[in-house]
Structure formats: C-alpha cells, structure tokens
Amino acid sequence: MMDKSYEIRLSGSGGQGLILAGIILARAAVIDKHKVTQTQSYGPESRGGYSRADVIISDREIYSPEATNFNCLLALTQEACDKYLFDLRETGILIIDTTYVKNLALAADNTYELPFTEIAMEKLGSPISTNVLSLAFLVKVTGIVSESALEISLRESVKPAFVDLNIKAMKLGFDLAKNYGK
C-alpha cells in the first residue's frame, strides 16, 4: 500500500517560488480527486536561504506528510541537490536545473537535466516562472497529475495579472518534456 502514495520534493532556495509550485501541484491533485498533503520548510528569510516543498499524493489516507523517500526530486540549486539526493528512492526521478546544479556526482538512473532558469529568462523574459516551468516539466514526465488539472490549479493559484505568463511557462514546460532527449 505504501507505494500507492507518491512523494515529491521541490527544492531550491527562497524566492524561487517552490512553495507556490507545491501548492499548485497539490491543488491539481485535489482536482484529480486524489488525497494530498503539502508541507514546506524554509529558513526565516524570504529571499535566499533554503526552501523546500513536499507534496504527497495518494488515494488512501496519508499518514506522515513529510516526504522521506521521494519518488521524484526537483532540485533547482546545487545545495538542494546535494542535500536531498540521498533520499531519492532508487527508481526515483531526479530533475535538476543545470543553470545552478553543475556537479552531479551520484546521478540517478532517471535524471532529467535542463537549464530551467536560463530557459525561463530566454523564452519568458525573466526567471520568475522557473517554478511553473519546471513543475510543468515534472508533471509531464511523471504523469502524477493530469495536465488539465495543473492548468486549472494554476489559474486558481496565481494572481490574475500573472496567469498568462504562467500558462505560457506551463506550456513551455510540457513541450520541453515532450521533446526531451529528442
């Protein structure tokens, strides 16, 4: 039964919007009628410092809300990658932002590497939607929630003025995943 729940950790530093990404993912899971918990841990400062959001998606009651053995780890910084890689399960999926993660001593089998921040700056004009871009990539790769649910959730979760930008980021994320390795 334990494998029925899917553990995701989104990690990086404060200001990268990971907690919002976690909320968007969790809300999408609710839209897909799953049970979900989303927790976070962050330093006292809202910029810089470490930041992580855990999302556990399941069809049964979720006991411990802290991800300890991830099915999927998104790491947007070197520090986060070094810190959490060991808790990724063997079959787990690792997604890293090569803009910041340069050394990958112990890569998992299923590793996806893309310079998400650079892509966001280039294609979307700013790094602020790196969170949504990489989340959409994660969703497409893992299939853990439906793309439609992610879109609804996104529209509900960000301020109206940012909807268009984020939808663009989401679509770009889906496309990157679809064409990954091609």
């Binding site: 927790t39 979720i62 809300p65």
Partner: peptide, 9 residues
C-alpha cells in the same frame, strides 16, 4: 507548526 502550515485536501 507543520499542521498550521501544511496544506491538505
């Protein structure tokens, strides 16, 4: 704290 800040369905 975890429950205060945790989101759940």
């Amino acid at each position: 704290e975890v429950i205060g800040h945790m989101r759940e369905s």
